[in-house]
């Protein structure tokens, strides 16, 4: 390796380490504060490291604030949303990219339009809709509107367009039914993109605040971020407790991310075709 490439590589690593540091620092600090006793955490600027680490905040927030219940709500909602939206994005994206049907372009345009509409604009009509069908305060109120995720559909559609149509033609000639092609060829080929969409949807659903706050008003049905905000209003002086709540909110994200990274980092297309 020449000096030039070595310097270049060192610079790259240095830059990336710096970026990772900037990203990770607040997360680690919040986790650290969660492990501090009240006086330490309440200092104007809490220290970086707890002098006497304790789990009292974690225990408090779970036992006294019923965080477990909200945690469960969030897990149910985010998981269901992820599963449903991957299913919808996978089939709709594939259909819009590779299946000939009447009105395909119109539907494509409508989905694109859906990407542009801000969620806030949908809150009122959505609430009216769900109240009419008596689904307010029900998990379905959070899951169903997010299931048809236009961003996910557009991403899958674009990804699918990059997969050569000859692969599907070959399967057709091989005798596979359309359903079999979808199951045995299309889904495995889309897997990296579906994983990416799944993670994206999970994170968005997990962090969503406005719509869950409006749609889930009954005590005990709130999701974590909404519940956390409520705790914040009551215990705004208890920084350690808040940090423990925030840490527990972040944790599943880290798990989801680590568990799924190998899927969307994988590139399965390489080598199928001549370059």
């Amino acid at each position: 390796m020449s000096l030039r490439t070595r310097t270049l590589r060192a610079g790259t690593y240095l830059g990336l380490t710096g970026l990772a540091g900037v990203t990770l620092f607040p997360l680690l600090w919040v986790t650290s504060i969660a492990l501090m006793r009240a006086p330490e955490a309440a200092a104007g600027t809490p220290p970086l490291w707890p002098h006497h680490p304790t789990l009292v905040n974690v225990i408090n927030i779970i036992s006294r604030q019923h965080l477990g219940r909200y945690f469960f709500n969030s897990i149910v909602v985010a998981t269901a949303t992820m599963a449903l939206s991957v299913l919808v994005a996978g089939s709709a994206g594939y259909a819009l990219a590779r299946v000939e049907f009447r009105g395909r372009r119109v539907v494509s345009w409508l989905v694109m339009l859906g990407v542009l509409i801000p969620n806030q604009a949908l809150v009122l009509p959505l609430f009216e809709m769900f109240r009419t069908v008596h689904l307010v305060n029900h998990y379905a109120a959070l899951v169903l509107p997010a299931a048809a995720n236009p961003v996910g559909i557009v991403l899958v559609q674009a990804y699918m367009r990059g997969i050569p149509v000859e692969i599907l033609d070959a399967a057709r000639i091989d005798g596979a039914s359309e359903w079999r092609i979808y199951r045995s060829i299309v889904v495995p080929l889309m897997a990296p993109m579906l994983a990416a969409v799944g993670v994206l949807v999970f994170v968005v659903s997990w962090n969503d605040f406005m719509w869950p706050m409006i749609a889930m008003q009954q005590e005990g049905m709130q999701t974590l971020p909404v519940a956390l905000a409520a705790i914040d209003r009551e215990h705004y002086q208890d920084i350690g407790l808040m940090a423990a709540g925030a840490t527990m909110t972040m944790l599943p994200m880290v798990v989801v991310f680590l568990a799924s990274q190998r899927y969307y980092l994988r590139s399965v297309i390489a080598g199928s075709l001549t370059d």
Binding site: I167, I173, D174, L273
Partner: peptide
């Protein structure tokens, strides 16, 4: 195409990228 009993070899091969050679051959 499924019922025509023809086989086709494509210019870009169009192998199934996620399947081994064995599975590519066996799929039909």
């Amino acid at each position: 195409p499924q019922q025509r009993d023809v086989a086709m070899v494509f210019q870009n091969h169009a192998l199934y990228p996620h399947m081994t050679v064995y599975e590519n051959l066996a799929f039909g």
